[in-house]
Structure formats: structure tokens, C-alpha cells
């Protein structure tokens, strides 16, 4: 039953991710991207990653995809026809994609995934007493605390960069003039 559901969800994911890159209207692309994220979060639920499934719903669909949607609607792009240059890049793109697909499938099919099943961390998933979120919190706030704070700093830098890039330097905007402020 689970494997049947997995196949259905995989087919939905593959079809809608093809439609993301092929549809002419960018708004349709964003909506299909949302469908891909939603189905991937269901896939994460199958893999016992409940916290990440919910985070994927909140962060990707709630923040990133809606941000894409806002930008697409704000920019007022006229849906132009595909220009002639589309065909120039078609053979190269398909060639590179095909080679990488063949190589990756070869690598995965030749690998024997029966390595030693490690129990590197004391608290692992098989411990059924704790929930998924608690396990992640226990490790994230102890062993990976530095990386956690580093990702926070990266988000801060991205926020400041985005604000600075999109700031209009026209007459209407209010700015702080430090010299004037000090001289008063």
C-alpha cells in the first residue's frame, strides 16, 4: 500500500516538475512548484521525517513559493512567444542532461547500499520514545549549535542584502542624514 502511494506521488512529482520548466506562463510554473513541494512533504512523512515535512510546508510553500508568486505578479511580464534561440540550446541541454542522467543511474544501480548500518549518535530515529522534533532539537542545539547560528547569520546577511538591493534612491524615500543629526 505504501509503495503504491509512493509510486503515485512520484508520478505527480515528476510530471509537475516537468511542467514547472515547460509551461509558458510563469504563474503556472510557480503553482506547479508548489505542487512539487507539497508532494515532497508527503514523501518526507513516509521517511519518518515529520518535522521536516511540516517545515517544508511552512518555509517552501509559505515563504519561498509565495515570494516567487509575488515577484512574478509584480513584474508584469508579458508572455512572449519562445524566441528562435530556444532551439539553439535544446541539443546542448538535452545532451548534458542525458549524460548526467545515465551516469547517475549507473552509479546508483551499481552501488551496493548494504554498508554497515551505523549507530553513530546515541539518540537516533529507531528510538521510539522520543518524537522526531525532540530528537532533532536535542542534536541541533548541542552538537550543531555553531552551524545553527551560522545559518542564522547567513539569513541576516541575505535579508540586509535584499533590502539594500531593492531600496529606491529617489526623492520620495526618507533617509537618515547623520551629519545633520549630529549638528543639531
Amino acid at each position: 500500500m505504501t509503495i503504491f502511494l509512493f509510486f503515485i506521488i512520484s508520478i505527480i512529482i515528476i510530471t509537475s516538475s516537468l511542467l514547472v520548466i515547460l509551461s509558458k506562463n510563469p504563474i503556472h510554473s510557480v503553482l506547479f512548484l508548489i505542487l512539487v513541494f507539497f508532494n515532497t512533504s508527503i514523501l518526507f512523512l513516509f521517511s519518518n521525517a515529520e518535522f521536516l515535512a511540516m517545515i517544508l510546508l511552512i518555509v517552501y510553500i509559505g515563504a519561498v513559493a509565495v515570494l516567487f508568486l509575488f515577484v512574478v505578479m509584480m513584474l508584469d511580464i508579458n508572455i512572449t512567444k519562445l524566441r528562435q534561440t530556444f532551439l539553439n540550446y535544446l541539443p546542448t541541454g538535452l545532451f548534458i542532461g542525458f549524460i548526467i542522467l545515465i551516469e547517475l543511474i549507473y552509479v546508483v544501480s551499481q552501488s551496493n547500499l548494504n554498508f554497515v548500518k551505523t549507530n553513530s549518535s546515541d539518540i537516533n530515529i529507531s528510538n521510539q520514545i522520543l518524537e522526531n522534533t525532540k530528537i532533532i532539537g536535542n542534536i541541533l542545539y548541542t552538537d550543531y549549535f555553531l552551524l545553527f547560528q551560522l545559518s542564522g547569520i547567513i539569513l541576516l546577511v541575505a535579508m540586509i542584502g535584499a533590502i539594500y538591493l531593492t531600496l529606491r534612491k529617489s526623492k520620495g524615500t526618507k533617509k537618515q542624514n547623520i551629519y545633520k543629526q549630529i549638528l543639531k
Binding site: V20, T85, I96, L101
Partner: peptide
């Protein structure tokens, strides 16, 4: 793998 390849081809083919 399939999703990765679709994304890669999308980077190449996207002329929109």
C-alpha cells in the same frame, strides 16, 4: 535523480 536532471535541463532550456 530524475528531479535533479529535470532541474538541470530546466536551467539549460529555459529561455523565457
Amino acid at each position: 535523480i530524475i528531479i535533479f536532471t529535470i532541474g538541470l535541463i530546466g536551467v539549460f532550456l529555459n529561455r523565457k
